[in-house]
Design a binder for these strands. Structure first.
Lengths: 356, 356
DNA sequence: TTGTACGCGTTATCAA
DNA sequence: TTGATAACGCGTACAA
């Protein structure tokens, strides 16, 4: 089976040496530019980096020489000279998952392309591997570190390193560390408020895995918001897993306990759960959202768009988490570190499971 | 809504300067180690890098001194001296998607942790942004580049750069470039062979988006395998989209045209399609797999595990693609470049939609 | 076996 | 305004 190969597409790589003359493709150096422009490398440096103290005409000459030679400064040499590399390390534990990537993209956006580059490593949930990656990144003289957890619960601190560290998604257990997390309680409250806005009054809660802090925080936020409206869930919140199967099973429990008339909306701990829940309701012949509305968490497009109808969900704003982490890291490298927890609020995304 | 914040969790970051004495946390240098060990920095260098020509006792002394000072060599300075950085750039176009990540993980595994680090950039399908990232990475003196496409169709070459480039998942249009891709035709053939093994004889094909080469390659591979068995699809392959909705619609078309008795297996162009197909069959009261078997492509766990029954699918071995890309890139940096296309074969993963 | 001296490509200091 | 010169941290001939 593993040797199966299609006809025309295949081509065996041939042994040909492509980089025959290593010196021929040599990148030009600042000295080359200086020579080309007829100045010293010191002035060439100043001219290109836009510092004061260089005549406009010579600056132009240097720049043109640089263009002619397609010169790009060697960031490694710059780093050695100025003491900063313009790189940061990102250690993640959830690369195959769906939380790290938006955080990474948000961070990448915040660090401009040419300013800061990101070393990405995945530690696969293993603390030994995490330490290896961290020390490897420190050896590369990164200016800072962003650590992204696989789940939102607090995690051990890396302690005091030689560069600033920001913990994203999963906060550090040390409150003096810099952490950026998602407002899980707020998400629960947003869900309730939206359902109340829709005129729903009999709300059930199907939560996720009870061992995750996020599961109970979302529930707590929802319950507080209900209480603020003088209400309560129609049934004790059900904890289980994060997947569709649990959603399918849990909604049956709800129907068994309170019946079709006893509930007009369900808050689900994840989009997986919400999808399982919605599928089962359709199979039971119950209309979503007119009879029972459903709302999920995480706003994961694969789930929200595959569902019938499409899922209303609460976006965790993970790009924003990445942006804030990057911003605080840059501030810290400039000596303006702001220790402590920062909470990014979530955002409602309305689709078919709560409004027609 | 966006200002929603939960009660106890929140904490406003305070203005405190954590990196008060920048010089105090200074990393030790090789010269420090040498002084500590009472030798010159040249011998210290040799001792630590394990080269010949240094007495065993002094080597030990140097190593202990290094340990005592927690010395880690400055990779940037090493790079400047030896001419290689031990870093590679990875430019992706599908980070939010699901193809780049496995490729990245495979590459990361192949480059050991301490040997090579990866700069990751996402160009978001924009060629301008891609160029920016590439030149930025070249400025950082990466030893090589891996370019990962968003879809498996051939893409424009970056041309001749100062470092080797490997194209992964999406090959370069230039056959002289190094490319590593997935054997899409082989995947189609694997699907057919498995269904034949299951005793199925009336096979329909629901393909993906016809504008993707992968869609028609998978179909072609399947048709060739059928032909080799003296068979043909029971209906002309249907092209459409990659999503569940298309799967739901297409299976209805199949049933309309050939009826429940006219088909006993369906090959779907993606797991999304396969899931939509399976869901609809269940709603129609048709048993999967006993009456009609279903097989998907890509082996994406979210889809395969959420489905009832779980989806049989064909894994594209993307980690392997990443591994091969990394290996060829390393070979190329050693002067042993093997230009041309390399095809990685796929792998069958059997689950409930083809066997009880 | 060890140490001296120089180079890698850039920035920073200071005298011209 | 410019240009020698000395760092930055490490590898490496070459000489001792």
């Amino acid at each position: 089976m593993s040797e199966r190969r299609a006809g025309g597409v295949m081509a065996e790589p041939q042994m040909v040496n492509k980089v025959s003359k290593p010196g021929s493709t040599q990148r030009p150096t600042l000295a080359d530019v200086a020579r080309e422009a007829g100045v010293s490398s010191a002035t060439a440096s100043k001219a290109l980096s836009g510092r004061y103290g260089v005549k406009n005409t010579t600056r132009l000459a240097v720049q043109q020489a640089a263009d002619r030679l397609k010169f790009t400064p060697n960031r490694g040499a710059q780093a050695l000279a100025i003491g900063r590399t313009g790189t940061v390390g990102m250690v993640t534990h959830d690369l195959e998952g769906r939380f790290s990537i938006p955080v990474l993209l948000g961070a990448e956006d915040t660090f401009g392309t040419n300013k800061v580059s990101i070393f990405l490593c995945d530690a696969r949930g293993d603390s030994i591997r995490e330490e290896h990656h961290v020390s490897s990144l420190l050896g590369r003289q990164v200016d800072g570190l962003i650590v992204v957890g696989a789940r939102p619960d607090p995690r051990p601190s890396l302690g005091n390193l030689s560069v600033p560290v920001v913990y994203a998604y999963a906060p550090s257990q040390d409150p003096q560390d810099m952490s950026v997390i998602v407002d899980q309680q707020g998400a629960g409250a947003i869900a309730v408020e939206h359902l109340l806005d829709c005129g729903k009054k009999k709300i059930a809660i199907i939560a996720g895995d009870r061992t995750y802090g996020a599961a109970s925080e979302r529930v707590q936020g929802a319950q507080e918001a209900l209480a603020a409206a003088g209400m309560a869930p129609v049934i004790e919140p059900l904890f289980g897993a994060w997947d569709e199967q649990w959603g399918r099973g849990a909604i049956k429990i709800v129907m068994d306990r309170v019946g079709k008339q006893g509930v007009d909306a369900v808050i689900c701990g994840s989009d997986h759960i919400a999808r399982g829940c919605t599928d089962t309701l359709r199979e039971l012949g119950i209309d979503v959202p007119s009879e029972i509305a459903v709302i999920g968490h995480d706003n994961w497009e694969v789930m929200t768009e595959g569902s019938r109808p499409h899922l209303t969900s609460i976006d965790s704003n993970l790009e924003k988490v990445g942006q804030r982490a990057a911003t605080r890291l840059m501030d810290a490298t400039l000596g303006r570190a702001k220790p402590g927890l920062e909470v990014v609020s979530c955002q409602l995304v309305v689709r078919g499971t709560t409004v027609e």
